[in-house]
Design a binder for these strands. Structure first.
Lengths: 145, 145
DNA sequence: TAAAATTAAATTGCATACAATTTAATTTTA
DNA sequence: TAAAATTAAATTGTATGCAATTTAATTTTA
């Protein structure tokens, strides 16, 4: 009696794991021009929507903790993309905001989503479907935590 | 005119990125008993199917290069899960095989796929759907490379 | 067949991830 | 209100990932 469940090809999570890395590689090419990594690009996406935000809030949006964010934000500060300053009301908090350079990168980034989708060459119906299923999964996992 | 494409919530790839990490966290709990990480578990899955394999073949199955595999396999060797030996026919190649301990872990691993699916609590129809979409995406990306 | 090209792993360097701990500030509570 | 508990970031330590380079072995080619 074979155990098919332990076969690699039947591992749905392996597909997610592989797809994540392959897609990140596609992004790497597109983001080269902006000189940011994919996680850094996500930080920029958040800050382009909301001018400033604490490290904690950023972490809640991106599902990342300070162990990941602190050094990454330090690198982004070093590259002059963001500024970090302690909150005056509560000195425990660090407020992250965009520099002029970080703000201006948004223009260059406009084309990235469409280019990425073009690279993926997936049709809109499937895309919406995928989006919906992943949202469901994420919500279910998050709910458990 | 708002640019919705640059909004985080519309980033399908962010969902894949997040889902990958959340699922890996679920695995982390399940794999604790086996004392392996998720990528190490993937190596074991492959070796449980085929007794032995070169580093290159392993990399082709898992989409990982020697920069990732070499140190990981060294750690697994250190934990007595696998053995590494140079091929006699071609000394460039390193052949990876399971130790008794690595082979025996398969029994303990039997329950993991079902437990994981239970944690995900996604219905079979959605699962098959997700599987199909991700396979399509992976195939399209792979084809480009 | 000897030099050039190719190939398989390993190594180097950098950037995530994340658990666990530490530090400093704030809030709660006895 | 002073000690205890909580909270936000940073730090520490470990394990991926991956591009680029190096090393050693094999194959190709001039």
């Amino acid at each position: 009696m074979e155990n098919n469940q332990l076969k690699l090809e039947n591992q749905i999570c392996f597909k997610i794991y592989s797809a994540e890395r392959e897609i990140t590689k596609l992004y790497r090419n597109l983001l080269e021009e902006l000189d940011v990594t994919y996680p850094q690009y996500l930080v920029l996406l958040v800050l382009w929507e909301e001018k400033s935000m604490t490290v904690k809030e950023l972490g809640q949006k991106l599902f990342l903790d300070s162990g990941t964010l602190s050094p990454m934000l330090k690198r982004m500060e070093g590259n002059n993309l963001i500024e970090r300053r302690r909150s005056l009301e509560d000195e425990r908090m660090v407020i992250i905001s965009l520099t002029k350079k970080g703000e201006d990168l948004k223009v260059k980034a406009q084309c990235i989503p469409s280019k990425l989708l073009e690279n993926l060459s997936i049709d809109m119906k499937e895309l919406k479907n995928l989006n919906q299923i992943l949202s469901t999964i994420l919500a279910k996992i998050q709910q458990k935590i």
